[in-house]
Amino acid sequence: MRRLILPLTFGILGTAILLSLGSWQVRRLAWKENVLAQIDRQIAAEPVALPVELDPDADKFLAVTVQGLITQDEVHVLASTRDTGAIYRVIAAFETTDGRRVLLDRGWVYPPSKDAQRPMVQTTVQGNLHWPQEVDSYTPENDTNANIWFSRHVPTLAKALDTEEILVVARSTTEKDPQVTPLPVASSGIPNDHLQYAVTWYGLAAVWVMMTLYYLRRMRKQKKV
């Protein structure tokens, strides 16, 4: 029996650790689902006028209504979706009726329409505020000469289009003949992999138990021989 104590101890400890990691991911899953539900409520809330003072953390996803002019000053951000493939997001400078100039994510166009001339238009936009975190060490440098951008980094876009560091992602507009298809903010784009992680840890715990039992059984057989 003494020979079995060490592997049995490792088996119990390893199983306990793996089960605790799985349970932690289950708790994280519940937390993340609550966060996503809160974001969904905020996205779908009744739109308000654009506040004067904004906090990128507290006001992220705030539903707003803005009235004004969509200018022809725009940048094109290369992106893709599962349903459309390669697209360009059209980010334009938007001049509000109360004299502000902010960024407007109008939506998307296919690559052949990237450089099409889009007229200035007076409209009312309903959408959500957003400060996307799309820049990391793998993000390419923007090709400003070709007007090809690789992220919606708000400070950079604001500098390029001479606007406030505010991005409104359009959900709908009153344009009669919109040339850009809105791509609204949605919580579906926020990763939530905690269920897969939990299943992985629990699966490893089951494997650990089976390996421990197999090893103990093998040791007992060797002792009998």
Rank of each mutant, 00 (worst) to 15 (best):
R3P: 02
F10K: 02
G11F: 03
I12Y: 01
L21D: 04
G22F: 05
G22T: 02
V26L: 15
V26F: 14
A30Q: 13
W31T: 06
K32W: 00
Q38L: 11
Q38A: 15
D40E: 14
I43H: 09
L50S: 09
L54K: 07
P56W: 10
D57C: 00
D59H: 15
A63G: 09
V64T: 07
T65N: 11
G68N: 06
I70R: 05
V77W: 03
T81M: 03
R82E: 13
T84P: 00
I87C: 02
T96W: 15
T97L: 15
D98F: 12
G99Y: 13
P111N: 03
K114I: 05
Q117I: 10
Q122T: 12
Q122P: 03
T124H: 01
T124C: 04
L129Y: 05
Y138M: 13
T139P: 01
N142C: 03
N145M: 11
A146N: 13
N147D: 09
I148A: 03
A158E: 08
R171A: 12
R171C: 04
T173W: 08
K176L: 09
Q179C: 01
Q179Y: 00
Q179N: 07
T181R: 12
L183R: 06
P184G: 11
S188E: 13
S188T: 14
N192I: 04
N192R: 10
D193A: 13
V209H: 02
Y214N: 04
R217W: 09
K221N: 07
